[in-house]
Write a protein that binds this DNA or RNA. Structure first.
Lengths: 171, 171
DNA sequence: ACAGATTCGTTGCGCCGTCAACCAAATCCG
DNA sequence: CGGATTTGGTTGACGGCGCAACGAATCTGT
């Protein structure tokens, strides 16, 4: 109702106009994230791992050559400091990790994966992989997966660099 | 340690082996989802919209030609029945939507967006769009966004069709 | 050396979400 | 029709998470 004479004005709106492609890309990201998280989370929880985040913690701990501290884990899991404290509490009381004190910094805590934690992780890994293998078979070729990884990885890197060390860090 | 003679066995492992591209695509999906949700959620909440999900509800209600009921909204937002009930509770007590009874099915409830809800949505839309415009500018071209939408949209559709009407439906 | 600022991890509080149970209404089917 | 099943939405109990405040340890600058 405001644009009375479109022939004389090239841009009648100055609000940022997001192309439909971006909008639907965003919806696709949300959708795929939710559906895949659900799938993996459900299978893992049926196999005995209560939360998807446990997997991230255990995997990060196992593949790291040196002992990790909560602050190192912060970037690998999508929670805040306090959330991480309680997450570790739970995993520890399940016997999969162990806290120990860090000698070089007496505020710090080392989080170490236990043998049981390693066994659990070993049991969960194929389950997790099977979900991807089964549900992406024939839908997302390796080349396509690489393209997704390239494009979205670029987005993540770009946004991270804009925020310039606000908090995150990623793998 | 098990594969003693790789020359004579083509496949030594039978556990599903997920290609690295799929793994990193998954990480990219998670990362981009988290970082973009954070960005949008933070901007919207600073502008007065407490949760990102409110936007989805309001937008769904506004663009629908006919009145919607909770069960219709279930697919648009990533929550369960009970979660949706309470979500609507909150939005309603903020005055942005209104419940009314559905005449054709007396178990049902109509959720209608109020004028205030429409105003709020109108105020939020450009804020949300600005986030994408600013942070994807120069990082994700329209063609690339389309590619992402195509690939991940395909994944979503494929998985949904496998699950064959388990629950979700999507836009 | 020392006061102030910063970092690391924990904790109290409140909000939000799921699960399971529930009630009411509708649908199915002999 | 009339009982059994299914569907739509709400509620109670419970658990996870973020925010803000805290205490302890470290770092900084003079």
């Amino acid at each position: 109702m405001l644009a009375m004479n479109p022939a004389t004005s090239e841009k009648v709106v100055e609000a940022p106009l997001v192309p439909v492609a971006v909008e639907s890309a965003w919806q696709a990201i949300r959708g795929s994230h939710q559906i895949l998280s659900d799938l993996v989370g459900k299978d893992l929880s049926e196999a005995g791992l209560p939360e998807l985040a446990w997997y991230d913690v255990l995997a990060s701990l196992e593949c790291s050559p040196r002992p990790l501290r909560p602050k190192d884990l912060l970037c690998r899991v999508g929670v805040t400091k306090s959330g991480l404290t309680r997450l570790i509490d739970r995993i520890e009381s399940a016997g999969l990790v162990e806290r120990s004190s860090c000698p070089s910094d007496r505020r710090g805590t080392f989080i170490a994966i236990t043998d049981e934690g390693r066994q659990t992780l070993a049991a969960m890994r194929p389950i997790r992989n099977r979900v991807f293998a089964e549900h992406l078979e024939g839908t997302l070729s390796e080349a396509e997966a690489e393209a997704v990884s390239e494009l979205l990885g670029g987005v993540v890197a770009s946004v991270r660099s804009e925020l310039e060390g606000e908090d995150c860090c990623e793998v």
